[in-house]
Amino acid sequence: MGRSHHFHLDEGGHSITVNVGRGRDGEIELLVNGKVIGYQQKHGPGMTLLTGELPDEPVRPFRVRVREPRLVPTGPRCTLELAGGPEQPMPERSERPVS
């Protein structure tokens, strides 16, 4: 079944988080400063693209790419492209144990 994956990056005083649900068919949530701003109900192997904006003046658009390997059973990779700049990897956070 697989596990959930959580990616996070702080950018210009804002928190950008991507939560990828369990398995290859799980949902993807995109959060800015803890608020869900994008959602993809299902995803499969290949690439999923989500877009959003950072609430600055003026707003700064960004894209997040979630890549699920097609042939190799490894976890997803996530990158951030801010305002047309270069893609930067988003580090994966480990799951916190439930107490």
Rank of each mutant, 00 (worst) to 15 (best):
H43M: 05
R63S: 11
E29L: 14
H43T: 15
Y39C: 01
E29G: 05
Q41L: 07
V64Q: 01
P45Y: 04
G46S: 06
V59Y: 04
M47I: 15
V59M: 10
I28E: 00
E27H: 09
P58G: 08
Q41K: 15
Q40K: 11
G38A: 02
L50G: 03
F62H: 00
T48G: 06
N33F: 08
R60A: 08
G44F: 05
V59K: 13
G34S: 08
Q40C: 06
P61F: 08
E53W: 09
G38H: 03
L54K: 00
V64H: 01
E57F: 11
I37R: 02
L30M: 03
V64F: 00
E29S: 14
D56L: 13
G44T: 11
P55H: 08
K42E: 11
P45C: 04
T48K: 02
T51W: 11
I37K: 04
E27K: 10
R65D: 10
G34D: 09
L31M: 13
L49W: 11
Q40W: 00
L31I: 09
V36E: 07
Y39V: 00
K42Y: 13
D56A: 14
P61V: 07
V64I: 14
V36H: 00
V32T: 08
I28S: 02
N33P: 06
Y39P: 01
Y39A: 00
M47A: 14
R63L: 10
G46K: 06
G38T: 10
V32C: 12
T48M: 01
G46C: 07
R60V: 15
L49G: 03
V59A: 14
E29K: 13
G34N: 11
G52N: 09
L54W: 03
P58E: 13
T48L: 02
L49S: 05
R63Y: 04
K35V: 15
V59F: 03
L50C: 07
T51P: 02
E57T: 15
L31F: 08
D56C: 13
T51R: 14
